[in-house]
Design a binder for these strands. Sequence first.
DNA 1: AATCAACTTCAAACCGCTTTGGACAGGCAA
DNA 2: TTGCCTGTCCAAAGCGGTTTGAAGTTGATT
Lengths: 345, 345
Amino acid sequence: MNLKELAQKLGLSPTTVSRALNGYPEVSESTRARVMAAAKRHNYRPNTRAIRLATGRAMAIGHVIPTASRHEIMNPVFADFIAGAGETYARNGYDLILSIVPDDDEDRVYRELHARGTVDGIIVHGPRLNDPRLRLLDDIGFPYVVHGRATGTVTPYSWLDVNNRRAFRRATEFLLDFGHRRIALINGLEFMDFAIRRRTGYLEALAARGIAPDPDLMSSEEMTELRGYRAACDRLGRDAPPTAFLVSSMISGLGVRRAIEERGLRLGSDISVIIHDDALSYLPNGEDVPIYTATRSSVREAGRQAAEMLLDIIAHPASAPQQRLLEAELIIGQSTGPVPAPRRS
Amino acid sequence: MNLKELAQKLGLSPTTVSRALNGYPEVSESTRARVMAAAKRHNYRPNTRAIRLATGRAMAIGHVIPTASRHEIMNPVFADFIAGAGETYARNGYDLILSIVPDDDEDRVYRELHARGTVDGIIVHGPRLNDPRLRLLDDIGFPYVVHGRATGTVTPYSWLDVNNRRAFRRATEFLLDFGHRRIALINGLEFMDFAIRRRTGYLEALAARGIAPDPDLMSSEEMTELRGYRAACDRLGRDAPPTAFLVSSMISGLGVRRAIEERGLRLGSDISVIIHDDALSYLPNGEDVPIYTATRSSVREAGRQAAEMLLDIIAHPASAPQQRLLEAELIIGQSTGPVPAPRRS
DNA sequence: AATCAACTTCAAACCGCTTTGGACAGGCAA
DNA sequence: TTGCCTGTCCAAAGCGGTTTGAAGTTGATT
C-alpha cells in the first residue's frame, strides 16, 4: 500500500493525502480525518526511502566506532552511550547507523557518509589530543557532536563531556583528606582526551597540597580487568606501595580489587580505591549501598544529551557550536577510608 | 556532484555513466575508463537515498535491541556481536541500523522497519522460550536470522547459535572427572533460551553419572558482577558448600571469584570455577595463559557469521532457512583442579 | 451582480538514481 | 545490396514520496 493507491481508494490526489497525513493546514479537517482513518485501516506506512529522497534528508545519524587496528578495543561504554542516544533518535524519528571501522579508514568513512547522504550528522567517539577528525568534518561541512573533547583544537566545535579533570581532582582531594599521600593513578590510554584530563585533575590536586607526583604511581593502560590487576600488582609489589588507588574505570577497578584482596588486604580499610563509574547497566556499583567510592556520570545519559544536541544542530545549521559539560558526582562507597596507621614491625 | 552533472561534463547520458560505474557490459572499455577517471577526479559518490529508492532495496540491516523494561539490561555481548556483524556489512556495502526499543514495543518496531522499507532484514537478539517474534516475522515475511535459538518454535527458521548444551555438559563432565560432586550452576536468566540450554547440559552431565541435581546449587540471575558475587556467597555460606562453580558469564565469574577469595579460598585449588567466555575484547581471559578454565566461543565471530547468513538469505529469498551451530572450545586455565581432600577438623 | 479572499484540491515537477526499450552504426553472411 | 547481429549509447519511464503553482469552490464584501 503506497501513497498513490491510498489516494486512489479515497478518490483524492496524492498531494492532498500527503498533506493530510503530514499535518499541513491547507486540508479540511473532515478530509484529514477521512485520510487518517483510511491510512490506519490499510495500515499505510510511507516508504522511508522515498521520503528521504524527496526531502533530501537522511533522517539518520551516524556513529562511527573505530576498532582494533592496534591500540583500541571495542569500548564497553559505547554500548550504553549508544543506547542513550538511540532513545533520543527513536523519539525524533531518526535512525541510528553504526559504522564499525578500522581506524586507519575512518576518514574515508566520514567522507562517504557525507557525500552519499547516508546520514545527516555524526557523533564522534573517542576524541584524542589534537584529533584530526574535527578538522576534516569542519572542512566537509558535516554536522557533528563530539563525545568528549579534543584538547588542542582551537576552532570552536560542539561537544558534550564529563568534567573529568574536576572529577579526578575531587577524588584525589578526597583521598588526600583521608591522609593518603601515596595515591596510584590507574588511568586509561593517555592519548585519549579523557585520560589526559583525568591525569591533569589528579596532578592538580597533588600540586595544590604540595605533593610531588611519583611517576611510579601512575600508569596508563587499556581499561580491562587484567590490566587493572597487573598494574595494581606492580604498584603493590614495590618498596613504598600506594595506600590508595584512583582508577579510571569500573572494569580495571575489578582487577585492582582482585590484586588487593589477593594480598589479604581489605578494601576500604587497608587500601582505598576510587573508580570512575560510567553507570553501565551491566556493571552496577552495588545495589543500595555503592561498593566503590566513585566519580559517577551516566554515559547513557550523556548519549541522550549528545544526541539531542546533534539533532538541534542539524535543525539549526546556522547556530553556533554548542558545548555541555556534565559534572560527575562523587559518591561515597565502602572502598575508601583513612590511611591505616603504619604497622610496627 | 550528481550523476546528471557528471554525465553532462562527459558528454554522455546518465544511463551510460551509471552503467559504466556499475560494471555493466554494454559499455565500451574506453568510455568506461573515461567515466571512472572523471568520477574519481570529481570524487563523485552516488547518492545512497536515490539508489535505495531506485533499486527498492534498503541496503541496510536492522538490529533490534530490546531494553530495560523490567528484566533486561543492556547486554554487554551486544557490543561485540554487533562489531562482528558490522565488519560483514561494511564489506558488502550494507549499513547497520540499530534500534533500541523498550521491549513491549518491539513488535511495532519490526512492523515499521518492514513496512517502511528501512531495512532488508533483521537480526533477532536474545531469543526466549517460544519467542513470539519469530512468528511475527514469518507472518510479515521479513528475512531474519536469530542469534541463538528459540526452543519451542516448530516451524523452521534461520539461526546461528553456540552449542550451549554441549559446552556446559562438557564443562560439567570436566569438573566431575576431577572428582567434584557438588557443582553450583550460576546461570543467566532462565527465560532466555541460551540459559535453558546451559542448564540442560549441566543436568545431563549430572544425570549421566547418576548424580541427583541439588536445586540449592542452581541459580538464575542477571549476569552482573554483583549478582555473581551474591549467588556465590549464598552457596558458599551453606552447610554443604559446592566445590566447584559453573558460571554463565565472565562478568558473573568476576563476582564469583571475589566471593571465593574473600573467604580466603584459592581459585583452582580450593574451589574450581569454569565460566563461559564470550571472548569480549575488553574482558580478555588472561593474555597468554587463560585465567579461567572456560567454555569459549567468540561472540564477535558469531556476529560476523550471522550477518553473512542474513545477507545470503536476502540474496536468495527462496532458499530454505539456514542453521549453524558453533561449538564452544573448552579451554583449560588456572581456575580448575581436583577436589581438595576433605579437611579433618 | 461582480469582485475578492480564503479554502480546498489537484496536476505536474522534482529528488537522483536504475532500468527498459529502442536507435544507430559497423561488420558479416546471404 | 539486403538483412541480421553485435556493440554502444541514449531517451524516458519508473521508484514513492514532497512541494510548487494553479485551479476550482465558497462565502463574504462592495
